[in-house]
Design a protein around this nucleic acid. Structure first.
Lengths: 360, 360
DNA sequence: ATAAGAAGTGAATCTTACT
DNA sequence: GAGTAAGATTCACTTCTTA
């Protein structure tokens, strides 16, 4: 150990990450967090239903001539990253379905040993405006050791206490980076199209490093990794090609005040788990498609569809909407309004929901 | 269309899925759900803190001599699956971090076009007994079209209904398969180590097929796909090597009672409703030639001509073209943009259109 | 000043039918 | 197949504007 002494600590190195990493000593950093280009392959412009234009990622750095070029780039930077990583170090990479399968296969081929894949569930993702796919509401992180059998660091207890004293799971919920945290220029435009939330880096850095250890970020951007590392008393090395990003990152990190005691560094609170949809009750087989629901007094009824909607006459909709419609009320809580028959007795739907609730 | 007639519908074919698929006609199935071996590469036996032994996956079918053999197997079955899939069909594959990156890269290489990656969040995962990693609390599904630009089926409204009328996201929460749903032998042992919950298949099948369409499952196991397909009024083809699994699957599926009314299976989509020309609304006398239409905020207006065109200033055209013109948008849905006055209130043209559409 | 309403926005592989 | 026109489509949150 001890190669850290040769490292340019707490600095941002300007240049291509493959070249710059090649100049760093081998086996010298404790952790690497990488947010490489996703190679989104967007074409044309996308409009919201209100006809406003979506400001998609069209940066030069996300364009590759073809899939083979992206693969070659991926394998090149991963190989350098592996060389620079200590034997007990770990690597994190974040991506989406566009690139993450290629990244994952490449790092397995290079000898990395995957420890977990982690899902960042976005509490406020952008919707799918055309209704042609599922809302893309998550991104994937891969966490890997340098090699099979290595004695990597994992701060199990820290993760457990972050999670109300139950084991931290592989799905993490955070909002996307907005509001005052999002770096903007004087005109209010975002400085970087894909700035990551600090809460995500907080958990990553806390999980796999101790205070004083070194985190390398080869795609530093506007420096989220550096800002969080400094706040948590870790050392960082950033590598970034774009000088405008580098300037923003340096100013941002200069303003960060480290926490006096890293045990005091609380993570932002978790978002509530999503509510139970009536569709989930149908999927779980707790009520069958075709079943008839009644109000408490059996004055009105409706039929359950396989997709969790209700049908009453020619009307179709959610348990809440159909309940409101048939009771003539402006709104309605379908969970308490509608009842199902169980051995001759009417029980509110809420009874079924509560069977799914403890599992959430 | 029509190749379905040559298919061995609602049967389980015994044999290796690559060989068996090779004997099926091309472009003949609407959807494929595949739960291939995960190549877990387990070594040794895992014990819980109380020293009880974890009953892991150690089946022969999950053992491959080396990573290259797993890749070759993956590409072979995916290539056959792609041949058998209709041009408008879609493929689902489920996996974990052990294999999903290799599967994803392979299917991209073969020309499939990924539509989403879907996270199955397990509400009750097995904990990590050693405390050396995050609890592996999810599995990943990839949903892919046969090729880029294909007109695949996606029952958007059905998915939205399942989720209390908000877009279905890419993260789905279900419990793992336990309790009475889990198939067991007389001694109480699990019949299959990785039986998937029916709720998961319910959502998958509802998302990408219509009643009567064909779902192929090349790794049929104990037949979850067949059971759910039958219940939802879809046709299925299962392929499975292990005769014990096949026997269990057949018995299980025989006991399934289909949903009585297949119209219950999905919320109809506006996209597939028959088109109504605005001229038909004028002809039906629902709005008079010369009537004035407004946008929602009364900022712009236009006049209805007897032929169903609109006139605004010197411009004349369809409700859509004039709407786009006056709102400065690249396109416009005239049915929702334009409003007519009814007793002092502005109502969208859509209200008139729905009066001409047959009730369904 | 405050509340209500309108407008803006986020790693996006985002249509379909007819001529 | 290419070109054109019809027409379907959004969630959670923040910030700005108006009453």
């Amino acid at each position: 150990m001890g190669r850290e002494l040769d490292l340019p600590l707490d600095t941002v190195l300007v240049g291509d990450c493959i070249t710059v990493m090649a100049a760093l000593p081998p086996a010298s950093v404790h952790a690497i967090f990488a947010d490489p280009p996703y190679n989104l392959q967007l074409s044309g412009t996308l409009h919201r239903p209100d006809n406003s234009e979506v400001d998609g990622v069209d940066a030069e750095w996300d364009r590759f001539p073809d899939p083979a070029a992206y693969d070659a780039f991926t394998r090149a930077w991963l190989a350098e990253a592996r060389r620079v990583l200590r034997r007990d170090g770990t690597l994190w990479v974040i991506g989406s379905y566009h690139n993450i399968f290629r990244v994952g296969a490449a790092l397995q081929d290079l000898g990395f040993w995957i420890l977990n894949d982690i899902i960042w569930r976005k509490s406020n993702p952008m919707p799918n405006f055309r209704g042609r796919r599922f809302t893309n509401a998550h991104e994937t992180l891969i966490w890997a050791a340098r090699e099979r059998g290595s004695r990597y660091r994992f701060n199990y207890e820290a993760m457990k206490s972050l999670n109300d004293d139950v084991q931290m799971r592989s799905d993490w919920t955070f909002p996307i980076c907005t509001g005052p945290e999002r770096l903007r220029d004087a005109a209010g435009a975002k400085l970087h199209p894909t700035q990551k939330p600090e809460a995500l880096l907080h958990r990553v850095i806390l999980a796999c490093t101790n205070p004083g250890e070194v985190v390398l970020d080869p795609f530093f951007g506007t420096g989220t990794t550096g800002a969080v590392a400094k706040r948590l008393g870790r050392r960082f090395i950033g590598i970034e090609r774009d000088e405008a990003y580098v300037r923003a990152a340096r100013a941002r990190i200069d303003a960060v005040v480290p926490v006096s005691d890293e045990r005091l560094a609380a993570t932002p609170s978790r978002r509530e788990a999503p509510r139970v949809a009536f569709g989930a009750v149908v999927e779980a087989g707790l009520i069958a498609p075709g079943a008839v629901l009644w109000d408490r007094t059996r004055r009105v009824s409706a039929t359950v569809a396989a997709d969790g909607s209700l049908r009453a006459g020619h009307e179709r909709g959610s348990i809440h909407r159909i309940g409101a419609l048939l009771s003539g009320a402006p709104s309605c809580n379908g969970w308490t309004f509608w009842h199902y028959e169980d051995r001759g007795r009417l029980l509110p739907l809420d009874v079924l929901r509560s069977r799914l609730r403890p599992l959430e």
